[in-house]
Amino acid sequence: MVSVTDAGMVRTHNEDSVGTLPEQGIAILADGMGGYNAGEVASGIAVSLISAELSQALAQRDPAAIDPESGRPLAEIMLRDEIRRANASVYQAAQSQPQYAGMGTTLVVTLFFDNRVAIGHIGDSRTYRLRGEQLTQITKDHSLLQEQIDSGMISREEARRSCHKNLVTRALGIDPEVEPEIHVHDVQSEDIYLLCSDGLNDMVEDEEIRLTLLALRSNLPLAAHQLVQMANDNGGRDNVSVILIRVKHEFPVRRRGLLRLLSKLKK
């Protein structure tokens, strides 16, 4: 598990935040928005709170256990609870301090457990999965462009040329309550998961991302830096952040190996 974040070639400061807890299978990426430095505050609050609270929750609850009310894995409930708490904290900070008024952040969080991964997201930060040679976007943007694509108003190619790329329809911290989108996916050995802010996918085509991951899948630190460099070489109009995770082996519950589910990458 490796992370890189960069201000890009145009912005004077970086409003993205990233956090990883490899031993617990947690990765978090947030892309802040707001007035001067407010976006950085929003994303920082979200990442720090969720990483701390989710880590604590994992010490007390088994994410693979089934919630009796919903019949879903507790991992989903835990993600939803912690994202909602972070939303409340960012919202309250924005309401109580004028310099932070209107701040918010996108968010994507992964929690690996029992040969599965629970992914919660809000906004247009993404998760991709490379399985074999196929790269798949497994989150769906909460954005105006995505709604226009879904309705057939524009094509994906037209969306890439749009000047409305940054209009999200859902963000953390803007309203008193927010509903994160959460899904659980099966995980296979040698899967590679990419979390990224839109500073990457707006600047680098999915096919270029795929080819980079294929070429450097045995060296994820280099792959992460290469992806950021590609975004900057193509203009770097936004902050760009990536987290890369390679699943080295299976991690079923029976092994009680949740705290060792992701081996450290060789440097």
Rank of each mutant, 00 (worst) to 15 (best):
I182A: 09
I45K: 01
L244T: 02
L172Y: 08
H13V: 05
R116L: 05
T12S: 04
L261V: 10
L145D: 04
F112V: 09
C196Q: 03
A27I: 02
S3E: 15
V108I: 10
R161E: 15
Y128W: 08
N87E: 03
L262T: 00
I245T: 11
F113L: 05
G235C: 07
I182D: 03
F113N: 03
L258N: 15
R72A: 05
P73G: 10
D141F: 06
I119G: 02
D124N: 12
A224C: 02
E179G: 04
E179R: 10
L167W: 14
V41M: 00
G236S: 00
Q188I: 03
G199S: 03
G35D: 00
P22V: 07
D238E: 12
Q24T: 04
V109D: 07
I77P: 08
G123D: 06
A46M: 02
L54Q: 06
S70A: 11
S241W: 10
E82G: 02
G34I: 07
R160Q: 15
S43A: 03
K165L: 06
N166R: 11
L145E: 05
Q137W: 02
Q99T: 01
N239S: 01
L58H: 03
N87T: 05
A215F: 04
I154W: 03
E147M: 06
E158R: 06
G8W: 09
R80N: 14
T110Q: 13
A27G: 07
S162I: 09
G235N: 03
A159C: 07
V253M: 13
N234F: 02
Q56E: 15
L74I: 04
R217N: 06
N87G: 07
K165Q: 14
D114C: 10
L220K: 11
M33W: 11
N201E: 08
H164A: 12
E207T: 08
D198M: 01
K266T: 04
M153V: 06
I174D: 03
A88N: 09
L259K: 01
R246H: 04
A46L: 10
L220R: 02
L222K: 02
A101V: 13
Q97M: 10
R160V: 08
D81M: 00
I50D: 05
Q134R: 09
R129C: 03
D191L: 13
Y91G: 00
R210Y: 12
S3L: 15
T110N: 11
E76A: 00
G25W: 12
T105P: 14
